[in-house]
Write a protein that binds this DNA or RNA. Sequence first.
DNA 1: GAGTGGTCTAGACCACTCA
DNA 2: GAGTGGTCTAGACCACTCA
Lengths: 244, 244
Amino acid sequence: MSNSNPAPAFRPLYQQIKTLITQSLISGEWRPGEAIPSETELAARFNVSQGTVRKAINELADENLLIRQQGKGTFVASHTEEKRQFHFLRISPDQGERVYPKGELLSCKRTKADAATARLLEIPAGATLVTITRLMRVGAEPVCWEEIRLPAAIFKGLNAAKINQYGCKLYSMFESAYSVRILQVAEQIKAVAAEPAVATLLGVTPGTPLLRIERVAYTFGDKPVEWRRTMCNTKSFHYMNKIV
Amino acid sequence: MSNSNPAPAFRPLYQQIKTLITQSLISGEWRPGEAIPSETELAARFNVSQGTVRKAINELADENLLIRQQGKGTFVASHTEEKRQFHFLRISPDQGERVYPKGELLSCKRTKADAATARLLEIPAGATLVTITRLMRVGAEPVCWEEIRLPAAIFKGLNAAKINQYGCKLYSMFESAYSVRILQVAEQIKAVAAEPAVATLLGVTPGTPLLRIERVAYTFGDKPVEWRRTMCNTKSFHYMNKIV
DNA sequence: GAGTGGTCTAGACCACTCA
DNA sequence: GAGTGGTCTAGACCACTCA
């Protein structure tokens, strides 16, 4: 008689250690920016060799959850760090230095999730959303208009004051105020004609081609926590991407 | 007296092994699709431990130069493989299965490099280019129009017949006919209005917003070997990207 | 059953940081 | 000089592939 079940799923030790470390990151045992215990300490704690801990930490560092620094230690990645700010930002000026755009909050209100958004955020249709719109400027020039939809169940009490308190830096706020860390995003990009309302805000004539970037952002366990649509005037900016 | 020279540059053994393996890949000692010697054999050949070879191979596998398969061996990556075909293709239909578009060659001729293209391809301005245009269709529907510029010095004797011989699959042809392997690409994306000529080919009205993707493709040693501009009708397709 | 890559250990030593 | 992560070795054993 053949075995109809799949194989009993061999799971390497270092994978199990990886899960344990991730759980400590989720639980907040080690906070963003802080150092985690040394490899030797963790090896003693988990009763495995240092090499096994190394392999687990290396993978977590590859996934940008941890940051290794020779001679200093291993640190929990944080969105408040300068370098992390740029990580998910793909809009870059055609000429000159890359700068972080300044966000200007336009609105923040409660709405109900339509079917499509609900599906992407894996919440029930009709669930409450926090819907934010903002304008992103480089210098005085408006470059992107954004609409952001968040599950209200996760971002309790979020309002305009709180957003402004964090200088409109949403992922920093997610991390500091809600312990929600964005680990990866998936984007779908199209070229579309500017609608009148957005055209006015971006200072272009209606019908001007704009880059439309739709993003779903994920936290631990591939859980979606943000939907975002960016309408970008690419007259003197572009979306950059490297594929290896 | 202080030493004004930089430190004597410590270079780990596994990095040196990595360079040696890469040289064998460039020289063609192991051809795309073939297996390279086992870790034990390479360890003996280079007089290091198997662990050091492992680390070198792992990094080359991360860079998509080699493909590991437990129980079988380690293989040289090839563009002719099904999976590799999709690697640099980011255009995807909004609904349904992802398919590889069919290329239709429009033209292939010699031109002179303008200053901007020459700079990106790191060749002298005025150097000879092979300039190719083609239309990419999914089913009968035209989706992208592409212009590709290649340094003629690298792609000797390239012509329309040769391109058609490879079914318009350029990276497969680069690899098979010119031993040029594309390892990474950098893209810049904008939204632009369709010009009349391209609009006609794509079956849209002039002024329709199109996605414009400009790509530089690199081979070993970060050497640029291709410039390409794609004009894409994103009515029912999009550019997809994941950021981790 | 022979051969491959994958995991795990234990231990030595090195590069780097900081006080 | 103490403590961190980084490299390297040697060896045991495991998971997987193929004939």
